[in-house]
Nucleic acid binder design. Sequence first.
DNA 1: AACGGGATGGTT
DNA 2: ACCATCCCGTTG
Length: 202
Amino acid sequence: MPSPTQVLEQGFYAAATPEVARGLLGKILISELGSQPVSGRIVETEAYLPKNDPACHAAKHRTARTEVMFGPAGRAYVYPIHAKHCFNIVTEQIDQGCAVLIRAVEPLTGIATMQQRRNLDDLYRLATGPACLCQAFGIDRSINGVDLTLGQRLWLEGDGHHVEDSKVRVTHRIGVTSAKHRKLRFVMRDHPFASGPKKLNS
DNA sequence: AACGGGATGGTT
DNA sequence: ACCATCCCGTTG
């Protein structure tokens, strides 16, 4: 019989950011933001740290844009970039200013809906890349600050699937210019739904 | 008010 | 390699 699913609660997110990023691999992202539910399995994440991480939006100081990053863990931090959006989950304790970026998921359900939203059929590019998955899941800036621990509108679940360390590759972050050396990207090794250069993922 | 860059992604 | 596109933080 299938393993019971469980909504990820605040305690899951209120931990060290790299641990959360690693732990999110294999978890299920579920959106009921539109009329049709969609879901997918997370295959790629990045950690943005509260201290000594110049690539983190909250690195310098608190601004209007990054306000939710300083709020409770388990809330959505959605920011616009290049006329698109990226979806993050706030981590650690209040006032820390850190988050995990969700970079790619493997589509599971609601695929037709995702294909409509993306105006694209190719399953392998439907929700691969942070801005692509936002479009596929109906995530825009109106979602900024939403509590992801409620199991409503947008949330995450574990389904008992265990991701072994041997299946995880840790690399530098994609598209980040500062702190380029830091290994804070977590990706399922050789996964067909991961973004980024293939050689980085194997 | 003006300016420049960006945790992107699609095209050449 | 190029660039569309636009928001945000910084500077004046």
